[in-house]
Design a protein around this nucleic acid. Structure first.
Length: 894
RNA sequence: GGGUUCUUAGCUCAGUUGGUUUAGAGCACCUGCCUUACAAGCAGGGGGUCGUAGGUUCGAAUCCUACAGGACCCACCA
């Protein structure tokens, strides 16, 4: 009979075909697409564009679920919701992948040249570049796919070039000779954040340098003897008395026999090594600074590929690490190596090639940041742009206040090529197009016969962040066409969801560009997610193999299950310790709702049934729902998405399923009255609305199963329920809910009596209530009967002898006493023990309140309301104590 | 080394300007249930002296100081 009753709905929810069906339906009906509509308020999110080489990992899952929740809610609120998707060309990451791919084919990047390499790179991008976006669809991401962008598509590149030229013309971009992190294997400069520092076992070499014109030595300590060949000074601390005699003297660099000055600088630590430092300005950041300060000569002894250069004079063309050993041998042979010590130090490695980074002087392009960054600092500090959680404000500020010039050139091929063109005389012009460059070059040189062939474009490409920082503007083509309808309508965007580790690289730069090119913030809120870790707290990584395959998870638990699983425990800024059990919980939740649907759909409306007794339940749930809405909106307004989900979860599971449905559920074989049925459908629909942003698929499915609907009546675009926050409503809700609490407390205690005495669920009990206000049970009496399986509720003015009794907390007035006659089944000793425990608690509580109230300073200083509250607490406790004592006395008589 | 931040139940976290809290939630746990929506379930229950030590206050998880431990950011390690 079950099958007929519960139609064709399976007892267990199966997400697989349902999810694909609805995603396609939404796509077909174009619900994700947005066009500017002046009648509607825009709500915009731009996706943090994943690397074009990327495949979906757990971090993306969390990040994009959050964005989808926000965008779906906005869409239902009637806003013109636009979520712009896309991918980032990610120059160094992609280039590394393509290089690796070619290497497998036995092809070397340098052998085939720039053009051929880029052809491979584009092919690679065509083939794999869309994968990650396809994967997002499985998650339910409601992106406006028609607006999908790629940071290197023509108009985006054009915009980037335009910005470069503009910043250059405004004097914000310059070429500079700077020390950078050089990757000798990839033969490129890399950013500080692409350098991994690792502790390594190395050696500290103590080397004697002869003092010029004297028969004495000074000993220095170094971990890199190969750089001795490039030394141009020796430095001591000005306060170091051991070396005062060296003041103004010169020393002789071993092997090369160059005489170099002894300089003094407080930078040198007297404690380290011998307190005497050799200075190689060309191959160490600090030495370079010293060199600048003391006007030292710079000798580059290590070439781009990590071998010794001509300037080194010795070991030319040999690798720096080979030379390190050979130098030590040579010095030893010369008798200038005093000793070596084992030593641990941290060495920088290239994130991509794992080669040891060589600090190297190089001509690079830089953006002057100090001035550009000012509005970006100010408007985060004054909350024009809010960071969630706000603790990141401090981090942001310290970075922005100490911002250094930004090296934007990379010695790579895959990326936005720098639009600088060199003339034959090595001067250069900066221009948006080669034609413009030629014109400028002719003008500059005064040589009108100059041709395009005479110009040589800069070989370098721009740092990826230079272009991705423009993302919120360029996706709407706001650089080339600053007045176009899209940018005017959608910009500034609303919320940005991203990871804290790119707060500076990306977020700060978007803000900077936003004020520079739109005179306006790029977004109002930045929600910073945490890192997804495994349950032991380890970062998920390929090498550890501790990262689940997201698509596999979706297949197994449903996108809805995985989405909620991820959101259950991930407050903003906190790492998510991912456990598969979270997905199970999400899946179970979906199943719970599914079964609520099966229950409601099984009901038959019977016009002869009177729904009067359900009025209380309906009124109670309506009040409960409204309060949950208020809570929900509060959570959303503060970006507490996990809490928002939990509010909906509890509303549905506890309030709707465990209480409401059980209260109105007709007895087996009975019909339900039309009023209750309709009210229940309405509640269910409303609940599906607030759940939809979190679980889009199952809610849409249920939406269509609850009632017959028009084709365009989809939940994804249904109106978001509003919370009624009027004073009248709040007061009314409070009254309804507090009487509800009383009744639920009574039911729980009755169930407890049953449970603790092993009385079967099926055995109906009798109940007597001693109360001064029996009318308050008129509404809820039948509910108590139903929920606790009570056969009859009667009122009494006297105690009922031989019954188990308990006190029900009264919302107002005296507490009521409930009696359940159980005959022989009462264990008097046990009852006494229970009551004594309760008594002790109440007495302790009263005592703590008493202590406050008898403290004259409390009574004098505390606000009226607080004192009144304490007095009420005391009165309530005393009433309960009295009642318990009476019960105890009665029991002890036995 | 400099800075920021955190430490509340077994786990993950709430706890808004100090006072409706001898502290709440979800999960986990324990007990009993195949009760006619759901065992991916139902009902009930136990569990924390709020990192430690002081201080301010009538009153501290909440404010201050020190200490211990963790996290993150920045810089550096000749």
């Amino acid at each position: 009979h079950l099958t007929s009753k519960f139609m064709s709905l399976a007892a267990q929810y199966n997400p697989e075909e349902i999810e694909d069906k609805w995603y396609q339906y939404w796509l077909d009906r174009n619900y994700f697409h947005s066009e500017p509509d002046p009648q509607k308020e825009p709500y915009t999110i731009v996706i943090p564009p994943p690397n074009v080489t990327g495949v979906l990992h757990m971090g993306h899952m969390l990040n994009n679920t959050l964005q989808d929740v926000l965008i779906r809610k906005a869409r239902m609120e009637g806003k013109e919701a636009c979520w712009v998707p896309g991918t980032d060309h990610a120059s160094i990451a992609t280039e590394a992948k393509v290089v690796a791919m070619l290497k497998e084919k036995g092809i070397n990047k340098r052998d085939i040249g720039r053009e051929a390499f880029l052809k491979y790179a584009w092919e690679w991008r065509e083939k794999y570049g869309g994968i990650i976006l396809e994967q997002l669809k499985k998650l339910g991401a409601s992106c406006d796919w028609a607006r999908t962008r790629f940071t290197m598509e023509p108009h985006m590149s054009e915009s980037v070039t335009k910005v470069f030229v503009d910043l250059y013309n405004k004097g914000h971009i310059y070429r500079g000779y700077r020390m950078i992190n050089w990757d000798p294997q990839g033969r490129t400069g890399i950013a500080d954040d692409e350098v991994n520092h690792k502790e390594v076992n190395s050696k500290l070499y103590f080397v004697n340098y002869a003092v010029e014109g004297e028969d004495s030595f000074v000993t220095i300590a170094t971990t890199r003897p190969e750089t001795i060949l490039g030394d141009t000074a020796v430095c001591v601390h000005p306060g170091d008395e051991r070396y005062h005699h060296l003041k103004g003297k010169r020393v002789i660099v071993p092997l090369v026999n160059r005489t170099v000055p002894v300089i003094e600088d407080e930078y040198v630590s007297m404690e380290f090594g011998t307190g005497c430092l050799k200075v190689t300005p060309a191959h160490d950041v600090n030495d370079y600074e010293l060199g600048k300060k003391h006007d030292l000569e710079i000798i580059e002894v290590i070439a781009d590929d990590g071998t010794m250069s001509e300037a080194a004079q010795f070991f030319v063309g040999e690798d720096r690490f080979v030379v390190r050993k050979k130098m030590a041998q040579q010095l030893e042979a010369l008798g200038q190596l005093v000793k070596t010590e084992d030593y641990k130090n941290s060495v920088g490695f290239s994130e991509r090639t794992d080669a040891v980074i060589e600090p190297k002087l190089s001509v690079q392009w830089f953006v002057r940041m100090k001035e550009l960054v000012q509005p970006a600092l100010a408007h985060v500090m004054d909350d024009t742009i809010q960071l969630h959680p706000s603790k990141f404000k401090n981090m942001y500020r310290s970075w922005m206040e100490n911002v250094r010039d930004w090296n934007i050139s990379r010695q790579l091929w895959w990326g936005q090529r720098i639009p600088a063109y060199y003339l034959p005389d090595d001067t250069f012009v900066v221009a948006e197009t080669p034609e413009e460059a030629l014109r400028l070059a002719q003008e500059k040189s005064g040589n009108s016969s100059l041709t395009a062939a005479d110009l040589r474009q800069d070989e370098d490409v721009l740092d990826t962040w230079f272009s991705s920082g423009l993302w919120p503007i360029t996706v709407f083509d706001g650089i080339r066409h600053p007045g176009n309808p899209d940018i005017n309508y959608y910009y500034p965007t609303n919320d940005l969801v991203t990871a804290p580790e790119i707060l500076f690289f990306w977020v700060a730069r978007m803000i900077m560009y936003g004020y520079e090119y739109r005179q306006e913030k790029p977004f109002s809120n930045v929600y910073l997610t945490g890192i997804v870790r495994d349950k032991q707290g380890r970062k998920m990584s390929k090498s550890l193999g501790n990262s689940p395959n997201p698509l596999e998870l979706i297949r197994k638990y449903g996108a809805d299950g995985v989405r909620t699983g991820m959101l259950f425990s991930s407050p903003a800024g906190n790492d998510l310790l991912f456990d598969i059990k979270l997905c199970e919980q999400g899946r179970n939740f979906a199943n719970k709702i599914w079964n609520a649907l099966r229950l409601v759909k099984s009901w038959q409306v019977d016009k002869t049934v009177d729904g009067e007794t359900n009025q209380a339940a309906i009124g109670w749930f309506a009040a409960r729902f409204n309060q949950a809405m208020i809570e929900l909106e509060d959570h959303f307004s503060k970006f507490r998405i996990s809490d928002a989900l939990l509010t909906v979860y509890k509303l549905l599971w506890d309030d709707f399923c465990s209480w409401y449905l059980e209260m109105v559920k007709p007895a087996y074989g009975k019909g339900i009255d039309a009023m209750t049925y309709e009210a229940t459908l309405k509640f269910f629909e409303k609940a599906m609305k607030v759940l939809h942003p979190f679980m889009p698929f199952i809610t849409e499915e249920i939406w269509h199963l609850l009632r017959e609907r028009q084709e365009d009546d989809c939940l994804i675009v249904a109106a978001w329920p509003t919370a009624d926050t009027s004073t009248d409503r709040m007061e009314a809700d409070a009254t309804v809910l507090s009487s509800g609490v009383t009744v639920f407390d009574a039911i729980t205690q009755l169930r407890n009596i049953r449970n603790s005495r092993q009385i079967s669920q099926k055995q109906a009990l009798k109940l007597w209530i001693k109360t001064g206000t029996p009318q308050k049970y008129h509404q809820f009496g039948s509910i108590i009967r139903k929920m606790a399986n009570i056969e009859a509720v009667d009122f009494t003015e006297e105690k009922v002898e031989g019954a188990v009794s308990f006190i029900v907390n009264a919302a107002q007035g005296q507490p009521d006493e409930f009696f359940v006659p159980l005959g022989d089944t009462i264990d008097v000793e046990e009852e006494i023990q229970k009551l004594e425990k309760e008594l002790a608690y109440q007495q302790g509580f009263r005592q703590s309140v008493d202590k406050k109230l008898s403290n004259t300073r409390f009574v004098e200083n505390a606000p009226e309301a607080v004192i009144a509250m304490e007095r009420k607490k005391k009165a309530d406790a005393e009433a309960k104590i009295a009642a318990i004592q009476e019960q105890l006395a009665a029991l002890r008589k036995k």
